[in-house]
Design a protein around this nucleic acid. Structure first.
Lengths: 344, 344
DNA sequence: ATGAAAGCGCTAACAT
DNA sequence: ATGTTAGCGCTTTCAT
C-alpha cells in the first residue's frame, strides 16, 4: 500500500518530454530551451518530485556525502568547540546539497586501526578531520587517496590541505593588548607545547614582546603541563607564582587554562584585573559566567567548519588543487579581566 | 586513471559463482551451501569488496540512513547533553550499519516550515527527534508517515513513539534522598512548569513527600521562571529565601538551576551542605568542578540515543509496531552537596 | 534542442 | 543449491 515514489518518468510524462530532457533540466544543462525548461520545472513542482539520491550516485559515482572525523573526547568536550565546527560544516554542506556523516574515533590508538566505515565503504566523496587525531590514523587515511582536509590540526611533517586559525596572530594581539595596558611582565601559561596551535600562540606572544623591545623571560613561560585544561591552569598558575612575584599579567593558551588560573588567583586573594590581568584564548561560552568575564581571543568556530567544507568541495570538484593552507583570522574580545597597569 | 571499483561481478568471477549467489551470501541467505559461502566470503576478503550502498538502496528502497533532528540551541548547549544523545544514536546506528544525518532547526518557528531536506528528499529510512522542537514542525513531520521516534520530548496530546527518561522516578529518588537525610522542608526549584519533564519531576517530588506523610508546601515550590538556566536558578533561590526561612534542602529541577542556586547561597554566606542541602538533575560535567560537587540525578544520555535508534530500527523493520513509550531509568549520584539535617 | 538506449551495481523472482 | 534475468531511477553518449 506504499505510495509509489515519483520518478523521472512521471515528470517526463507530465511535461511531455523524454526522461533525458528532465535529467538535463535537473542538472542545469544549458542546451535546453527556455520553454521546455519551464515546462519541466513546472511538472517537477506540481508532482513534488525529488531525484533519487541512490540512482544519482549509482551512475555519477558521487555520493554527495562528506565524512567528518574527530576523536570522541573532542566531540564531547564540555565547551562546544568542535561541535560548532561540525555545525558549520553541516551548514555549508547543506548549502551545497551534501550530507555529512560523523565518525568519532578513540583518542588512543592502541585499539588498532579504526578507519571509519564510510571511508572503505566508499560512502563519502571526501573527509574532514577536526582537531588532533592519532598520527597513525591520519597516515592510514591519507593512503586512501580520498579528498581530505584537516581543520584545526596541523602537522608540518606532512603536506595536506588544512584550515587553521591564525594562532600566531592570536598570540600577538593578545600580548599586544596587555602591552598596550602598560604591562611588562607578562606570563605565558601553555599546556602541551608540542601541540602546534599552542606552539604558534607562544610564537605570537614572543614576537609581540620582541616588537615592543621587551626581553623574553623564560621563567614566566610555563609550558610543562600535559594538557591545557582547568586543573593544569590552576597548577601552572601556582607554579608561576611560587617562583615569581613581578608578573602583572597572564596570557593563557586557552580559556580552560585561564579559568583554572583565575580560580588559583581567587583562592589566593589575588584580584583580577586589579592585581593581575588575564587573557584567554578560544572564547568559550563559560567565560561570560566568570567573575570577571574573561578577555580572550575569539575563534570563529562555525567559520572554521564552513571553510573546511568549501575547501573540501573545491578539491572534490577539481582534483589538481595544490594543498594550500587556509588561515582564518581571530579577534580580540575585551572584557573585564584585563586593565591598565599603573607603575607603583 | 581511477582505480575502478570492485563490484559484485569481480567477486562472482573470482569465486566462480553467479552474482546472484554473491548477493545471497552478502545478505546472509540460508540457502547457500557452506562450501560456496566460504568460497565467496574468501573472494570478498581477497578483493576487499564492499557492496555499493547506492546500488543497494536503489533496488531495496532503503537508504540505510537515519535522520536526527534537534534545535540548534540544543545542539550547541554548553553542556553536551544532546550531543551525547546524538553520539549514542550514532553508535547504535553504526552497529546496525546505518548512518545518521543531522539536521538542526531553529527554535522559533516563525521562519516558516523548515522540514529538513533529508525528509522530503527521501534520504532517510526514519527520523529521531531529540528534545523539544516547535509544535508545528512535529505535526508537519508526522504527516510524512515516515518512521519517527522522539527522545527526551513528549507531548501527551499526540500519540507517537517516544523514548524518555523516568522523570517521575528521578524526582522521587532525589526527594527521598533528602527525606532520608532527615530534611522536612524541601523546596522545589522548577523552571518552565509547562515543560513535561519538569512537570514530571515535580510529580515525583510531591509523591515522595506524600509517601512520607509530609504536607506539601506550595510556598516553597518555585516554578515561575521561564527557562531552567543558571540565572533563573539564582533568581528563584532569592525568591525562595526572601519569603521563607525554614527550608533546609532544595531539589532543583536541573543542574543549571542548582548551580545558579548554589551561587546565590554562596553570595549570601549560606553553606552547602551545612545549612542547605542541594540536589540537581541531569548530571552535567560542570558539576564536578563545583564546590561542593553536586549530588544529582544521572541521566544516561548515551543510552537515550541508543534506545531511540533501537526503537526506530524496530519500527522500520516492522511497520505494525504500536507506538509505545520507552522509559529509561535514572540514577541518584550522591556527592557532597547533601548532608544530614540535625534538628537544632 | 531533444530523444533513444545503454548501463551504473545490485536484489529478487523465477528457472534449473 | 545455484544461475538467469529484469529492473530499480538515473546520467550520458549518440542519434536525429
Amino acid at each position: 500500500m506504499e505510495k509509489a515514489r515519483i520518478t523521472i518518468k512521471d515528470v517526463a510524462k507530465r511535461a511531455n518530454v523524454s526522461i533525458a530532457t528532465v535529467s538535463l533540466v535537473i542538472n542545469n544543462n544549458a542546451r535546453i530551451s527556455k520553454t521546455t525548461r519551464t515546462k519541466v520545472l513546472n511538472a517537477i513542482k506540481v508532482l513534488n518530485y525529488y531525484p533519487s539520491k541512490s540512482a544519482q550516485s549509482l551512475v555519477s559515482k558521487k555520493t554527495r556525502n562528506l565524512g567528518f572525523i574527530l576523536t570522541d573526547d573532542h566531540f564531547l568536550r564540555t565547551e562546544p568547540f568542535y561541535t560548532r565546527i561540525f555545525l558549520g560544516a553541516e551548514f555549508e554542506a547543506g548549502r551545497n546539497e551534501y550530507y555529512v556523516l560523523l565518525a568519532t574515533v578513540k583518542t588512543d590508538y592502541n585499539e588498532g586501526v579504526q578507519i571509519p566505515r564510510f571511508v572503505f565503504e566508499g560512502s563519502v566523496d571526501g573527509i574532514i578531520i577536526a582537531g588532533k587525531i592519532p598520527t597513525e590514523l591520519l597516515s592510514e587515511l591519507l593512503k586512501f587517496k580520498i579528498p581530505l582536509v584537516c581543520v584545526d590540526f596541523y602537522r608540518n611533517d606532512i603536506d595536506y590541505p588544512v584550515v587553521l586559525i591564525d594562532n600566531i596572530q592570536g598570540g600577538m594581539i593578545a600580548t599586544e593588548h596587555l602591552l598596550n595596558l602598560n604591562h611588562k611582565n607578562i606570563a605565558f601559561l601553555g599546556g602541551d607545547i608540542n601541540h602546534p596551535s599552542i606552539a604558534d600562540r607562544l610564537i605570537g606572544y614572543k614576537s609581540a614582546l620582541q616588537k615592543a623591545n621587551i626581553k623574553i623571560n623564560e621563567n614566566i613561560i610555563i609550558t610543562n603541563s600535559p594538557y591545557p585544561n582547568r586543573q593544569n591552569g590552576y597548577d601552572s598558575a601556582r607554579l608561576l607564582f611560587d617562583n615569581n612575584n613581578d608578573v602583572t599579567a597572564i596570557f593563557a593558551c586557552n580559556d580552560a587554562m585561564a579559568i583554572g588560573a583565575m580560580q588559583y588567583l581567587k583562592d589566593n586573594n589575588i584580584y583580577v584585573p586589579q592585581d593581575i590581568s588575564l587573557v584567554g584564548f578560544d572564547d568559550v561560552e563559560a567565560n561570560l559566567l566568570l567573575d570577571p568575564p574573561l578577555t580572550t581571543i575569539r575563534v570563529p568556530k562555525i567559520d572554521l567548519g564552513v571553510e573546511a567544507v568549501k575547501y573540501l568541495i573545491e578539491i572534490i570538484n577539481n582534483k589538481n588543487t595544490t594543498s594550500k593552507k587556509i588561515i582564518v583570522p581571530v579577534e580580540l574580545i575585551i572584557r573585564n579581566s584585563t586593565s591598565e597597569h599603573y607603575i607603583k
